[in-house]
């Protein structure tokens, strides 16, 4: 299997993990509330991630192993703060879900926002990521997946 195919499968597997996470976090939120559920999930996630580092990833990767782009410079502080926008989503999405948008509308718009951001980030090289040319095929793929996802979300079970 080529490295590219493996990356594809890993990314899709990541999406499956995300579904499983959402499923259990929803149970937790039903018994408590969304904010507390997210807090507990972050706490437990921190412990689990730490255990993973100590057991299977003790060695730090060699600098520039993954991208080789300017890895010799110091790591900017904001590289460590990805958890803040992630946690903010928990609070803001609770507000949106309670509006007229309801759950389905909120999720559909959140997926759209993600796609637009991903496209803009690649095209413009936002947040220090290397610029990538966005091809017509890339846009068609994103369009199909987004349209299909919105149908799934709005289509009910």
């Amino acid at each position: 299997m080529t490295g590219r195919a493996l990356d594809w499968l890993l990314a899709i597997a990541g999406g499956v993990l995300l579904t499983l996470m959402t499923l259990s976090n929803a149970v937790l939120a039903r018994h408590t509330d969304a904010l507390w559920a997210s807090w507990a999930a972050h706490g437990l996630g921190a412990v689990v991630a730490l255990v993973l580092v100590l057991t299977i990833a003790r060695r730090k990767p060699a600098p520039g192993q993954n991208t080789g782009s300017g890895a010799r410079t110091r790591t900017p502080l904001w590289y460590y703060l990805g958890g803040i926008p992630g946690a903010l989503v928990v609070i803001l999405s609770a507000v949106a879900v309670n509006s007229e948008l309801a759950l389905a509308g909120t999720i559909a718009l959140m997926l759209t926002g993600q796609m637009v951001f991903g496209t803009a980030a690649d095209h413009l090289g936002l947040l220090h990521i290397p610029r990538r040319r966005v091809t017509g095929t890339d846009l068609a793929v994103a369009g199909c997946v987004l349209a299909g996802s919105v149908l799934i979300v709005l289509g009910g079970a």
Partner: peptide, 27 residues
């Protein structure tokens, strides 16, 4: 607000991705 949420998710994942190139995915 919902669109902004999507942007925040994208930003969070991109920033974590950037950190992984320096510190590794698990860190």
């Amino acid at each position: 607000l919902a669109l902004l949420n999507g942007v925040l998710i994208g930003a969070s994942r991109t920033i974590n991705g950037q950190l992984s190139t320096r510190a590794g995915a698990f860190r």
